[in-house]
Every structure is written in C-alpha cells, then in structure tokens.
Amino acid sequence: MSFLSRAAPVAACLTWAALAPIAEARPVSYPGGWTAMQMNNGDASSLHIHYSPTASDSIGFYAERNWAEDVQFTGLQYNRLLKRWNGPSSQANTYLKLGVGEADPFGDASGELSGFAAFAADWETRRWFTSYEARATDYAGNQSLRHSARVGVAPYIGDFGDLHTWLMLQVDNHPEAAEPTTTTPLIRFFKDVQMVEIGYTLETEELLANWIIRF
C-alpha cells in the first residue's frame, strides 16, 4: 500500500477534526500511554490526542469544530483524575478537564483567546455504566454551559480481547440550543484498545459517532 493511500485517511481525519465534544471517556491513560479520541455529534466534531505521564494526568492537543456556535477552537487540553474509587468489581472516577487556546469564529480570520473547563464523573462495572459531565466554554466571547449524562448496560460480559458491546442512552442539556434537551440512544463497541460509538439523536435527527484508540 502506498504512502499516499495510508496517509490519506489520516489527513482526512485530522482535517475533519480541525473543522469538535462532550462525553470523552477516560481522559487519562496509563503512564506513558497515548490516546487519540474523536467525538462527533450534531453540534460539533473534536479531536483530542493526549499523553499520560502518570495514571492521574494527561495533556495534549485539542481541536473542535463547533457548528452550533459557529466557531473553531484549537488548543491544549489538560486532564486530571481527581479521585478514583476502586472496588472489587467496580470503578468510579472524577475528572477535571481544562483547555486553553484560540477560537476563530467562522469566516473571521482573527482568533481570540478562549478556553473551557469541565468536570466529569463516571461509575462502571463490567455490566453497568453511568457518567456525567458539566462543561463550560468561552469560545471567542461566546460563553455556554452544557450537561451530559449517560447510562449503559452490557448485554453480555466478554473476556479480554473479545468484542464488548454496550447499549447506552445519552441525555444532553444545552440551554442556549434550539433543542435544549436531547436524547441519544447509542451502541458502543469495545475491543482491546479500540472503542467505537454510534448513536442517533432523536430530537435533532443527527448522527453521533465517536472513537478512541489507546497506544
């Protein structure tokens, strides 16, 4: 396979992502681990590539193309695992996410200092999953606050290396949006170090497609 044919999908992906993000799963990896995650929904698409120097921190590049707010954000994101509770068959986490960078309103060449802050929490077993995230953004002076929550169930318990499947329901609240509250049934496929999610937002009839790879 030629270099071009290999590079083309990467270039397309990066271009698209630069053109995104709400519920990022596990924003911190193992020490020395890299993670690439891409989130897409009706409002925005995002790309986040981060490195975890410890099991409690990660830092990396974050780009978001937000159609709902007509703005593109590019910057750095820092994620901090605030607290983890490890149980015999469960795990719960709270995270802080901070981003700083430049946001360019569509059609406007001048970027402005912008940023975001988010608090996220999750709890999961091998059967059940639930998460919540509150995210405040200031993109080029346009401030907004969003909430996102999920519940999920695994219809079967797979072994390591198997294809894991989760059925989830995501509820988003964005008071400034035309549809302030939306619900998105989605399916998550999880195998080894790769995760893919596909969903459909009922109120806005838009697709949700997310993926994560750890390496």
Partner: peptide
C-alpha cells in the same frame, strides 16, 4: 449540513476500520 456531518461520521469509521492504518497506529 446534516448530510455532511453524517458523511464525516462515516469517514471517521472508515479511518478506524482501515487495517493498514490501524496496524500502523497500534504498532
């Protein structure tokens, strides 16, 4: 615009499922 977003989603999935790329990224 909506179709564009769906197309973008399909593109992302195609990237993920491209064996050569996946091999390269995961070494």
């Amino acid at each position: 615009m909506k179709l564009n977003k769906i197309a973008f989603g399909i593109l992302a999935l195609s990237v993920l499922t491209t064996p050569a790329l996946a091999d390269e990224m995961m070494d």
